[in-house]
């Protein structure tokens, strides 16, 4: 299935990835292709997952979009600009695998950190941080320090911090992979609620099929050695999504469809 055939044809493409390739040099100085020949269009307001086993280059792809890494081949355009231009305009919110909270700052001060880079006034920062903490349900923990929070709460702060700068695009790199199932499900619901409310474009990296299917409009399946886009699966489950949808045959069929779209047919 081609991205161009996607049903929301009237919505403009926000991220356009063309023939993207990244080649590393390993310790022996030999070239290793992390990803090759990736073509992908992502629409404004779309929730797209990059799904694949480790070594398929999904994180590398995300880092290229965020301008944390230079592609060796092809190019990326975001709203017609290069990733670097977009990054310098603070239009990306990046949620890393680990919360990366600064231990010496309170929760609220952590959320204010990116706003300090944007030279906002103290009052603006404080108001925005309160707003974001309310959105992730951590208002009562504003003056706590990160090491006083559970892993799930820390990851919420991470998301609040990323959203604070009002980015157009939220890039998430396996944000929930270190959390237990219960916390993960709660955060899935929260993320979808926030996404609906803020209308961001989300590019979400994961190695969890259920997670990708539950959250996404489209699941991009990547295969390793070399990392490449092997399938794009439309997820036509209705919105808003609820946890009991995971029990429906439609959900399970989509999970199976995604699973079978891995080259070789299995997720190993």
């Amino acid at each position: 299935m081609n991205a161009a055939e996607y049903t929301r044809n009237d919505v403009p493409d926000e991220i356009v990835i063309r023939d993207l390739g990244v080649t590393f040099q390993d310790n022996k100085g030999e070239d290793v292709q992390a990803i090759t020949g990736v073509n992908l269009n992502i629409k404004k307001g779309e929730f797209v997952s990059l799904l694949g086993p480790s070594g398929c280059g999904k994180t590398t792809l995300l880092r290229c979009v965020a301008d944390l890494q230079e592609p060796t081949d092809g190019d990326i355009h975001v709203e017609g600009m290069t990733p670097k231009e977009v990054r310098l305009q603070h239009k990306f919110g990046f949620v890393f695998q680990s919360p990366v909270l600064f231990d010496w700052r309170t929760v609220k001060k952590n959320v204010e950190l990116p706003l300090e880079m944007m030279y906002q006034t103290k009052q603006q920062r404080s108001e925005r941080a309160d707003e974001m903490l309310e959105m992730v349900g951590l208002t009562n923990f504003a003056n706590h320090f990160p090491n006083q929070l559970s892993g799930g709460m820390q990851q919420r702060v991470n998301i609040a911090r990323a959203l604070g700068i009002r980015p157009d695009i939220l890039l998430m790199d396996e944000p929930f992979s270190a959390l237990d199932e219960f916390t993960k499900e709660k955060l899935h619901e929260d993320l979808l609620r926030i996404w609906r409310k803020t209308n961001k474009t989300i590019l979400f990296v994961t190695h969890n099929i259920q997670e990708a299917v539950f959250l996404s409009d489209r699941v991009c399946v990547l295969s390793p050695h070399p990392g490449r886009l092997s399938a794009v699966v439309d997820i036509d489950l209705p919105r808003p999504r609820t946890l009991d949808m995971k029990e429906t045959p439609a959900f399970n069929q989509l999970v199976l469809k995604v699973r079978n779209s891995f080259e070789g047919g299995s997720f190993s």
């Binding site: 965020a66 944390l68 990046f94 890393f96 695998q97 990366v100």
Partner: peptide, 23 residues
């Protein structure tokens, strides 16, 4: 530094001076 801490500052387009002062 913590893993990704420098990347985090990069996503904020933080100038070198800010990375030093804040991180």
């Amino acid at each position: 530094l913590k893993p990704y801490a420098k990347d985090l500052m990069a996503t904020y387009a933080a100038p070198r001076r800010m990375v030093f002062l804040k991180l």
